[in-house]
Measured scan of single mutants.
Amino acid sequence: MATGGRRGAAAAPLLVAVAALLLGAAGHLYPGEVCPGMDIRNNLTRLHELENCSVIEGHLQILLMFKTRPEDFRDLSFPKLIMITDYLLLFRVYGLESLKDLFPNLTVIRGSRLFFNYALVIFEMVHLKELGLYNLMNITRGSVRIEKNNELCYLATIDWSRILDSVEDNYIVLNKDDNEECGDICPGTAKGKTNCPATVINGQFVERCWTHSHCQKVCPTICKSHGCTAEGLCCHSECLGNCSQPDDPTKCVACRNFYLDGRCVETCPPPYYHFQDWRCVNFSFCQDLHHKCKNSRRQGCHQYVIHNNKCIPECPSGYTMNSSNLLCTPCLGPCPKVCHLLEGEKTIDSVTSAQELRGCTVINGSLIINIRGGNNLAAELEANLGLIEEISGYLKIRRSYALVSLSFFRKLRLIRGETLEIGNYSFYALDNQNLRQLWDWSKHNLTITQGKLFFHYNPKLCLSEIHKMEEVSGTKGRQERNDIALKTNGDQASCENELLKFSYIRTSFDKI
């Protein structure tokens, strides 16, 4: 039985969820670079991206490699990797027998973001014989899940209580170790020597080791999670996991709180800001991140802002960003909400898709409305799209047979046209069989910064309504002859009103 693990408890099935942008060198404390989270699957090609990484700022997932063999891993080693800020997950990587050479110096898994409450997941690794993470000293947050690894031993010899604050939620089941077939031998045991430290858990006094050649490092209890030197002297209180010299914040392997210019500090002093819960960055760093993602459509890219001495992905609820200094300031009234469309555009074809934009005031991208039916549609669209004030790209209304009016965009005031449909149009209306009105132009103002209007096959939309939009939106004169079809717009509506004058002759039985 794995020490510190839980057996036999019912657990939810383990679901495996399925960018080499360097964020800056980590400095003297770390020998390499800070790398983003990685999802490495199918083959070993991307694994080489770990070569210079000291910190993975995010998670590391290595999974679904069915053609790899043990010899493929023999020359692979990433000794610079010290810390993973989120979680480490391995799933069905064939041929991998140990992690001792792959990650010989991995010391800390912070667990800032977890995989279903777990910071370390080893699942269905069919050839893994031992973990071998002999320098792993601290899992700051989260638990361990090690399950269905039929060859995995050296679990009962690990004292997880020396690595985690609590072992109650560890789930370590259905491994070879369960069948008591392992016969784990710690260093020196074969020669009758006791080389590794022994600890007591559940009444068992057991030597602690990761492999037959690597003991588990056990520091004096007084050192807590700070770690200790090879001689057993406690590291500085700002260290986490390990250090090369005692009581020196510049000799830590990793930091308990924050890293700044080669030393570990309790908090980031001005003019620095907390970033990702582990390091200090200056304003320029946060500003660069903001600008890199301002026009990016890459998933996970955030326009970072500053709030409460932190550089964070977005302002919290009730705050909006001051564009001059990136500071989050309290909103006066309802907060603006910028919604970034991942692929640059979004099609609204149902109430469900409209709900995804609920509360958005600025759309960074283009909207395509293609709704053919739905219950209580006008009210639903207004509830979900009615706060949109600005669209950076274009607005396209296409084959939306259920629409009679666009009044559900009740606050839309600006279409920038930074991206144009077919390279020309910022407003595009095609084949809307029941569209009769755009907006009530006596109450609604709309500016279209650039781009043209396109109207074709809107049989109940009168040309007068379209011409009014040209005047109000500032697009009059931009359109070419064929942009607004004269014969297919309003051709099934009563669009022309003329005053009919009647004269009559009164007659009676005795007068003409």
Rank of each mutant, 00 (worst) to 15 (best):
D184K: 12
K224F: 07
K191P: 07
Y304T: 14
F285T: 08
P79A: 14
P271Y: 12
N202M: 07
N105L: 03
L136P: 01
M137E: 05
L289A: 08
L240R: 06
Q276G: 11
Q245N: 14
P197Q: 14
R69L: 09
K251W: 06
H48T: 06
I146K: 00
C243E: 01
E180T: 08
E49M: 11
N150F: 04
S77L: 07
L81H: 00
R162Q: 11
L289E: 12
F205R: 03
D39W: 12
I146N: 00
R46T: 03
K100M: 12
I139A: 03
R256V: 07
C209G: 01
N179D: 05
I222G: 11
S317R: 15
L29E: 12
T221A: 15
C223M: 00
C53G: 01
E314V: 10
V253G: 07
R110M: 12
Y154I: 02
R41C: 10
H59R: 12
G232A: 11
L99M: 11
I306A: 08
Y87E: 00
P197H: 04
C153N: 00
A119W: 00
C280D: 00
L240A: 12
L102V: 10
L29R: 03
D169Y: 03
T189G: 14
K217G: 07
K129Y: 06
A190V: 11
C293L: 11
K224R: 06
C196G: 02
N308D: 11
G32A: 15
P316S: 06
V121T: 06
L81P: 00
R110T: 12
I172S: 14
H214A: 08
L89H: 02
P36R: 12
W278V: 04
Q303H: 12
I109T: 00
K67A: 07
R298L: 13
A156L: 10
H274L: 15
N42C: 09
I56T: 01
D39L: 04
G183K: 12
L260W: 07
P271A: 13
P220C: 07
A230I: 13
T140V: 08
A190D: 14
N170R: 10
T320P: 05
V121D: 00
F78R: 05
L90E: 00
F205I: 03
K193V: 09
N308S: 09
C311F: 03
C243M: 00
S161V: 14
D177A: 14
C243R: 00
L44D: 14
Q276R: 11
S213W: 03
G227E: 01
S244F: 15
L131I: 10
F285P: 00
N52I: 04
P330N: 07
H214Y: 08
P313L: 10
N149I: 00
F205N: 08
P197G: 15
N150V: 12
Y304P: 02
K67H: 11
K191Y: 14
N105T: 07
F78T: 02
L260S: 13
H291P: 02
P104W: 01
S54G: 01
W210Y: 02
D277G: 10
Q299F: 05
P70D: 15
C255R: 00
G111C: 02
E266S: 13
K193R: 05
H236N: 13
M38W: 03
D277K: 03
D277E: 12
H212V: 06
I312R: 03
R298S: 11
N149L: 00
V108Y: 03
C280G: 01
L60G: 00
P270V: 13
D72N: 14
V121W: 03
K191R: 10
P220V: 05
H307F: 05
Y87I: 00
L174N: 08
H236E: 11
S54K: 06
K217P: 03
S225C: 11
I163G: 00
G333E: 04
E147G: 03
F66Q: 02
G37I: 02
A119S: 08
L114G: 00
T107H: 12
V281K: 01
P220R: 04
E266K: 08
Y272G: 03
P246G: 11
C286S: 02
K191H: 06
D39E: 08
S244Q: 13
L174F: 09
L99F: 05
V126L: 03
F275M: 09
C280M: 00
R263Y: 15
E207P: 03
E57F: 04
G232P: 07
D75E: 07
K310W: 14
L133E: 00
I62T: 01
K224E: 10
C331G: 02
Y273A: 13
L155N: 01
N295W: 15
T157E: 02
T140S: 09
L133I: 11
V144A: 06
I84K: 00
E238C: 03
A119C: 04
N309E: 05
P187R: 09
R69C: 06
T329I: 11
C196K: 02
P249D: 03
I158S: 01
C264Q: 01
H307S: 11
Y30T: 06
M38R: 05
S166Y: 09
N135G: 12
F66N: 01
N195L: 13
L152K: 00
H307K: 08
T85R: 13
Y134W: 13
C301N: 04
F123L: 01
S323I: 05
K80W: 06
P246I: 04
Q287G: 14
P79S: 08
T320K: 07
V121R: 02
P249G: 14
M125S: 05
L96F: 02
T194N: 11
C223R: 00
Q245T: 06
H307M: 11
R92V: 04
I62W: 06
V218M: 05
K129I: 05
T199W: 09
G203A: 09
Y134G: 06
C239Q: 00
N52P: 12
I185C: 14
I201R: 02
S112M: 06
F205G: 02
D177T: 03
C53H: 00
C53K: 00
C223F: 01
Y154T: 02
P336N: 15
C255P: 00
T189L: 09
C186L: 02
C153L: 01
K310T: 12
D159T: 02
C153I: 00
S296F: 08
N150P: 10
I56K: 00
C293M: 00
N195I: 12
R113W: 12
C243F: 01
E124T: 03
G58V: 00
D169V: 06
V173C: 13
T85P: 00
S323D: 07
Q245M: 12
G188W: 15
S143E: 02
I139Y: 00
Q204T: 04
K191I: 14
N175T: 03
G227N: 01
G142S: 02
P187D: 06
N242K: 06
Y118Q: 06
G95S: 06
G227P: 08
E180R: 11
H214P: 01
L89R: 00
Y134M: 10
